[in-house]
Design a protein around this nucleic acid. Structure first.
Length: 422
RNA sequence: GGUGGGAUGGGUGAGAGGCUGAAACCAACAGUUUGCUAAACUGUCGUACGGGUAACUGUACCGCGGGUUCGAAUCCCGCUCCCACCGCCA
């Protein structure tokens, strides 16, 4: 959520920024500013009226003490008269406030100045490309066939027990999955991230804190009985640790990581995009989350990119890094880098990680601040997948397949305990 | 699930209709002094929003939401959460 103070001061810059998302925010911003003015006017009236009422109440108290009941009664009459006015004003203030809130929720984050204008994925800029794309001298299989051939994943069993999008991993497939989680966590810890094992369900306040609610309500599984949401990513519990927190000074850099299963309803998805591991309702992910001083955000983002890059290199996967254009960025992001791994068998790039800086967009909702001398300022938040398992598993299977089986990258062998799946 | 107790500022904890945005103590911060890895003393010490260039000032907030009253941290109702014991159970 954008800060209202910022909208008051930098309206034109915000319009220019949102234009990069192909959004013309002029009318929304005008409405916001008008609503804000109405709200402030009503609020000022209300405050003055309340002050008057407080004053009268105090006087009545004095009169009672002196035993001047009659004078007190006269004031009481006046007070109840003002009281009706107060009720009306309160309602008016509440209405403006609600309208303002609704408008603010509709505005996505303003892209960072380095982000280019663009419509969709076509306009993303490739900033880095590395690794080599394997050439197969045999019939390369997509991962769903490999998974079946080597008995690594059983999709049908998942359908039977739960439903589509909830696969079973088995045998070496399960071990590989566990090895990847361990590997990712160890790497994150080595890079200075503190590991958390978090709850897998969160309350409503946390859903609002990171912005899943109210806009993406349908994306989360909801447990009605207890009013809890299954987490769509570890970002939600980890970031919400810092909801309603004021850090004591500006000298901080918080780095957290955590492995969790992630639950996503993915309502509306269908077709070949959801084949195999490409899109699941439950998947595993190691997430890295940072809370930073605004001065340190750019550096933190670079570190996170380098971290993910390092992972992909150790897994020996051909990848590229894209800086998303305005039109392709998520709602809350100010700047996002996507990591894609090439799948030689599917002959396409698969998104395996997304690293973003949110600047104050999340912290404004979270009320995550720090004390800077006298002032209280909003922190910056960042997060990234490091990494999401299913598509990494898919890329590993597809890119490292040989005629004799699937080769396990060196860095992973001490975790799996085997060097080939055959 | 049952019974009982509780929820106040960074912490402990007073408060029981107007003098309470809230005592006291601890912690923290600033200063004075004596001096030396310390003590004593003094001061500062919640958040949000509005108004004001500012000093400052107004309003709201004592778990949350309602109600009673001229006036609520204090009384009433509903809810949530926490703690203890019991029950059930990994």
């Amino acid at each position: 959520m954008l800060e209202i103070q910022r909208i008051r001061q930098e309206k034109d810059a915000i319009i220019a920024g949102l234009a990069k998302r192909n959004i013309d925010a002029t009318s929304t911003l005008d409405a916001i500013i008008a609503t804000d003015q109405n709200w402030r006017a009503a609020k000022t009236n209300l405050d003055q009226l309340a002050a008057e009422l407080n004053q009268i109440a105090r006087e009545i108290g004095e009169l009672f003490k002196k035993g001047l009941q009659n004078d007190a009664s006269a004031l009481k009459a006046k007070s109840s008269e003002l009281k009706t006015k107060e009720v009306q004003l309160k309602e008016e203030v509440a209405q403006h406030e609600e309208a303002l809130q609704k408008l603010l929720y509709t505005l996505p984050n303003v892209p960072h100045e380095a982000v280019v204008q663009g419509r969709d994925a076509q306009d993303n800029q490739t900033t880095h490309e590395a690794g080599h794309i394997p050439q197969f001298n045999f019939d390369a299989l997509p991962h769903w066939d490999l998974a079946k051939k080597y008995k690594l994943i059983d999709f049908e069993l998942g359908v039977k027990v739960t439903g589509a999008g909830f696969p079973f991993y088995r045998g070496k497939g399960a071990k590989l999955q566990r090895a990847l989680i361990q590997f990712f966590l160890d790497e994150a810890i080595a890079a200075g991230y503190e590991e958390f094992i978090s709850p897998h369900m969160v309350n409503e306040a946390s859903g609002y804190g990171t912005g899943q609610l109210p806009d993406k309500e349908g994306q989360m599984y909801y447990v009605t009985e207890d009013d809890l949401y299954l987490i769509p990513t570890a970002e939600v519990p980890l970031t919400n640790i810092y909801r309603d927190v004021i850090l004591p000074d500006g000298n901080f850099s918080i780095k957290m990581c955590g492995y969790t299963p992630c639950f996503r309803r993915e309502a509306g998805s269908y077709g070949k995009d959801v084949r195999g591991l490409n899109r699941l309702h439950q998947f595993d992910k190691v997430e890295i989350v940072r809370v930073e001083h605004p001065d340190n955000t750019a550096k933190a983002l670079d570190e996170m990119i380098a971290h993910v890059q390092n992972l992909l290199e150790k897994l020996e996967l051909p990848y590229r890094i894209l800086r998303l254009c305005g039109g392709d960025m998520g709602f809350a992001s100010a700047m996002t880098y996507d990591f894609e791994v090439y799948s030689a068998a599917q002959e396409k790039w698969l998104e395996v990680s997304s690293v973003s800086r949110f600047d104050t967009f999340q912290s404004n909702r979270l009320k995550l601040r720090f004390k800077d001398d006298k002032k209280t300022m909003l922190c910056h938040t960042l997060n990234g997948s490091a990494l999401a398992l299913p598509r990494i598993l898919a890329s590993l299977l597809e890119n490292h397949q040989t005629a004799d089986g699937i080769r396990i990258p060196k860095a992973l062998q001490s975790y799996t305990g085997f060097s080939i799946i055959d």
